[in-house]
């Protein structure tokens, strides 16, 4: 017992993390560990795509039409090159395309979640702390938005921006519009969760103690309440990341997302499905599998996080 009390006194962050209940619950769940490893590997691979991908799929000079439709793990009949995941109609290496595609998907996913979280947390904090008509207004907007499917909202926002942005800039701006569309369609959850946690926290005595000495409301929200409502937000953000990636793919699949010159996983799937019935199954299968595994791992991580942060379920 003595060594344990000694250890808890050491102040190093690493020691505290290794000794925490969260870390232990993480280690004890093999599914979570595997999901975490898969997620990290996929993120690292996507980030380092230019370094590790065998080809640059966007450099037309490296493409060889003779290599089109090479099946996976089979030597091309003209050049003898072997591709792990095969090639598409233009002879583009699917593996490299997936690496670059995940980059776009993850970028859009993270940025959209970030946007949704910032927006939702800000509105949720205001709504919960101020109450009254501010609360009523924000929450009614949230209710209205929630009564439409997220994809419809995203399509609507996308359509509006398509109308505003001049056609010459559209391809260039597509990715930002996509982030905006997904982010704006997903803030409601954050706002609702943060609002209810804020309403609980603001009545706690540590917040009242700050009010007694006249700490201004924005500082109370930022320094006292925000750190204490972040737990549930983290859970939603993790699960939201998986949803945002899927939503991005759906939009790209429908042809309203990123342009084919800068393909995401969704774009790759859309392009690939044209060849599904002519026998070139690999063009759609591998991007599809990547999307599935990525979304599943992130989702499993989110599930674990929700359970680990909720003491009642432990």
């Amino acid at each position: 017992m003595n060594t344990l009390t000694e250890k808890s006194k050491t102040d190093s962050l690493l020691a505290r993390i290794l000794d925490s209940d969260i870390f232990h619950s993480f280690i004890r769940s093999p599914v979570t560990v595997v999901s975490a490893i898969v997620t990290v590997v996929m993120i690292v691979a996507a980030l380092s795509a230019p370094l590790i991908s065998p080809h640059n799929p966007f450099d037309p000079a490296t493409l060889n039409l003779m290599e089109g439709f090479t099946p996976p793990m089979v030597a091309n009949e003209f050049t003898g090159n072997v591709y792990w995941f095969g090639t598409d109609a233009q002879g583009r290496d699917i593996f490299s395309a997936i690496l670059y595609g995940s980059r776009v998907s993850l970028l859009v996913g993270f940025a959209a979640v970030g946007l949704a979280a910032v927006l939702g947390i800000t509105l949720g904090l205001m709504s919960g702390y101020l109450g009254g008509w501010v609360d009523a207004l924000i929450m009614r907007i949230a209710d209205v938005q929630l009564s439409f499917p997220a994809i419809l909202i995203a399509l609507l926002i996308f359509g509006v921006f398509k109308g505003i942005i001049p056609p010459a800039m559209q391809d260039q701006m597509a990715i930002y519009v996509l982030i905006l569309a997904i982010g704006l369609s997903d803030w409601v959850q954050y706002a609702r969760t943060v609002r209810s946690s804020t309403m609980a926290e603001k009545n706690k005595e540590y917040v009242q103690a700050a009010r007694v000495i006249g700490v201004p409301a924005p500082l109370i929200l930022l320094r006292h309440i925000l750190p204490n409502v972040m737990g549930p937000v983290l859970v939603i953000a993790t699960i939201g990341l998986a949803l945002a990636i899927i939503l991005e793919s759906t939009l790209s699949f429908l042809g309203v997302g990123v342009p084919p010159t800068q393909p995401s996983l969704g774009t790759l799937i859309r392009v690939g499905q044209d060849y599904l019935f002519s026998g070139e199954w690999w063009i759609v299968l591998f991007p599809g599998m990547t999307l599935l595994i990525l979304a599943l791992s992130v989702n499993l991580l989110g599930d674990w996080l929700r359970d680990a942060l909720n003491p009642r379920l432990r």
């Binding site: 706690k204 005595e205 540590y206 009242q208 103690a209 006292h224 750190p227 204490n228």
Partner: peptide
């Protein structure tokens, strides 16, 4: 005393 100190 459990609610009057910011836990973070």
């Amino acid at each position: 005393p459990f609610a009057s100190l910011n836990p973070r």
